[in-house]
């Protein structure tokens, strides 16, 4: 564990708390992609199957349980109490391609052909693309509530800090995982346009609005 990874994980945890705060305070899930949230639940469940086989630390176990359960709770919120505030027409990304594409990539690139390892690889490639339905929705709407942009910023910052963590781990431990590094770089790159608008508008107190 290093400081970059710790802060990254805390940003990830913080992003989820911001999303829950948005839902609780506005009693609405408007602007949030159900598909992206569902993809994250699949990502966490397929990645953390090793909860039962491989103990890392109490911190690691706690975070895994938090990510799985909060993702499940967010889906419940969007489907049950906040159902009427969800706009399905804005959430129009063809996510079948992401689910299938990650499957193909996992079968090609997995380190080992065991069930747990292949599902781990699947989760990495699925997470790489899971934000796309949310970004498409943002693009279609052209604007977003400020709290939603803070959520997305925290999520993007978590990914960017993981890259710093990998550089640090390479320098100090000679640890490299090609799959997570490549997928992580692609995933972070997807946030570039969003970061630009966030830094130039939201942080200056203006509304998030696409040019």
């Amino acid at each position: 564990m290093n400081i970059f990874r710790l802060v990254a994980d805390l940003m990830h945890l913080g992003s989820i708390l911001i999303l829950l705060l948005k839902m609780f305070t506005s009693r609405s899930c408007a602007g949030i992609s159900f598909k992206t949230q569902a993809l994250y639940l699949i990502v966490f469940v397929t990645r953390y199957l090793d909860l039962f086989t491989h103990f890392v630390s109490v911190y690691n176990t706690f975070m895994k349980i938090f990510f799985i359960s909060s993702a499940g709770y967010i889906l419940y919120m969007m489907r049950v109490p906040l159902k009427d505030t969800y706009n399905k027409h804005l959430d129009a990304f063809r996510w079948e391609f992401l689910l299938g594409g990650a499957g193909v990539l996992a079968l090609v690139f997995t380190h080992k052909y065991t069930v747990i390892e292949t599902l781990w690889t699947y989760s990495i490639f699925l997470e790489m693309m899971a934000i796309l339905p949310q970004l498409l929705q943002l693009q279609r709407t052209g604007e977003a509530e400020t709290i939603t942009t803070h959520y997305l910023f925290a999520l993007g910052a978590y990914r960017a800090l993981y890259i710093v963590n990998w550089i640090y781990r390479y320098e100090t431990e000679h640890h490299v995982d090609a799959i997570s590094t490549m997928a992580g770089i692609v995933q972070t790159a997807l946030y570039c346009d969003f970061f630009y608008v966030y830094f130039t508008r939201v942080l200056k107190g203006k509304r998030f609005k696409l040019p």
């Binding site: 990830h12 491989h54 890392v56 895994k64 080992k112 065991t114 390892e117 640890h175 995982d177 997570s180």
Partner: peptide, 10 residues
């Protein structure tokens, strides 16, 4: 340590 079952990142 590279790959395999020992994934220690979240």
């Amino acid at each position: 340590q590279d790959g395999g079952d020992g994934h220690d990142e979240l």
